[in-house]
Amino acid sequence: MQLIFDGHNDVLYRLHSHAKAGRDPVAEFVEGTTEGHIDGPRAQTGGLAGGFCAIYLSSPDLGHREPDERGHYEIPLPAPLSHLPSLASAMEIAAIAQRLDRAGAWALCRSVADIRKAMEAGRFAAVLHMEGCEAINSDLDELETFYAAGLRSLGPVWSRETIFGHGVPFAYPRDPDTGAGLTEAGFRLVKACNELGIVIDLAHLNEKGFWDVARTSRHPLVASHSNAHALTPVARNLTERQMDAIRDSRGIAGLNFAVTMLRADGREDAETPMEDLVRHIDFMVERMGIDCVGIGSDYDGATIPAAIGDASGSQALVEALRKAGYGEAELAKLCRENWLRVAGETWGA
């Protein structure tokens, strides 16, 4: 079995949603559930050894995909979220991550050494990520507090506007060049992340924002859960020029399991063959090299192929890649080592 360190998942969002309904998030993770994609038992079964776990805040006005007769769709960007309610929710989610750590349900990791130690002990190695920074104000004071709580990765935006920049819409077919780039506060955020050693995730940024980060950051470029636009032309996927920039920075792009970002037709259909995942991996490896590609499942945040199902089926992708000709050393890089290299270069530990 090849252990997997995942570039992106939304298990904390699911646990927080259930906690709001009166359920115990620690018990749900430890004992397991049939809902969603990740819990301790299913992760153990599928060799999902850890990953970046997102503090994600949903938009109440997010629309639905309503494809036309050609399968085309575009969901308008939802309205920006207010800071103080976002901060309160983000603190609740971060508290769940701390409770899971304190209970021994997972290990909240702040360094690559922490991750490797947790993996060796068979504990889920969780790294705190923030997907969209509505909880952080322009003075960046909250960034320091979240860093102290274990935050080691953030995306300045989700697919909506923040005070830091602009996200791409969910749209097919569409390229990611959809608006303005980083704001002045966004440039300050990038520089502060460089100083603290926080990964800057470009996954939901529009193209101008991507290039603003590329010009400003001194760390490897990261798109935690994005696929190849040349194969699936959704706005969220990466152009070849963006992939070249990630390669040139010795960064990483993580394969997203979301079927709408894998299928050539962009449809939300769980009966998506494993060949589509392999096709995107092959394309990204050919364009960026074996050292710059990883896995960014988007578990608990998207419709994923039925052939995987949930975290317990993670090895289905590994086996498909093995059958496609990838050797064990290459699989180790794709499954975890590339992520750990980029994290270590960014965190300095």
Rank of each mutant, 00 (worst) to 15 (best):
M1C: 11
Q2T: 08
D6A: 08
H8L: 10
N9Y: 04
D10S: 02
L12Y: 02
R14K: 15
R14W: 09
L15G: 01
H16Y: 03
H16P: 00
G22F: 08
G22I: 13
G22M: 07
D24R: 08
P25G: 09
G32R: 04
I38M: 15
I38N: 03
G46C: 15
G47H: 15
A49P: 03
G50L: 04
C53G: 02
S58D: 12
L62N: 06
E66A: 01
G71Y: 14
Y73R: 07
I75S: 05
I75T: 05
I75G: 02
A79V: 03
L84Y: 10
L84D: 10
L87I: 01
A88E: 14
S89E: 13
I93G: 00
I93C: 02
A95E: 15
L100I: 03
D101C: 10
A103L: 10
G104N: 14
W106I: 07
R110H: 10
S111P: 06
S111M: 04
S111C: 11
S111K: 01
K117T: 15
E120S: 10
A121K: 15
F124D: 04
A126N: 04
C133L: 14
L140P: 04
E144D: 15
R152D: 03
L154H: 05
S159D: 06
E161P: 00
T162Y: 00
T162P: 02
G165E: 00
A171R: 00
Y172G: 02
R174G: 08
D175P: 10
P176L: 02
D177C: 15
G179R: 06
T183M: 02
F187I: 11
A192N: 10
E195C: 11
L196R: 08
I198E: 01
I198W: 08
V199L: 09
V199D: 00
L202V: 12
H204A: 13
H204F: 13
N206L: 01
F210S: 03
F210Y: 09
V213A: 10
V213K: 00
P220D: 15
A223E: 14
S224M: 08
H225M: 12
H229L: 14
H229Q: 15
H229P: 12
A230P: 02
V234L: 08
V234G: 11
A235H: 06
T239S: 15
T239L: 09
M243S: 05
D244F: 10
S249V: 11
S249H: 10
V259Y: 01
M261R: 07
L262S: 07
A264P: 09
A264W: 08
G266M: 06
R267T: 05
A270E: 06
A270T: 12
P273H: 06
P273K: 06
L277H: 10
L277N: 06
R279T: 12
D282T: 01
F283S: 04
M284I: 09
M284L: 08
I290F: 04
D291W: 06
V293A: 14
I295Q: 00
G296Q: 11
D300L: 01
I304C: 01
I304V: 13
A306R: 08
A307P: 08
A307G: 07
A307F: 00
G309L: 02
D310G: 05
S312I: 04
Q315M: 06
R322V: 14
G325V: 00
G327A: 03
G327I: 13
E328W: 06
C335S: 12
R336G: 02
W339M: 00
L340C: 14
A343Q: 01
E345L: 05
A349S: 06
A349L: 05
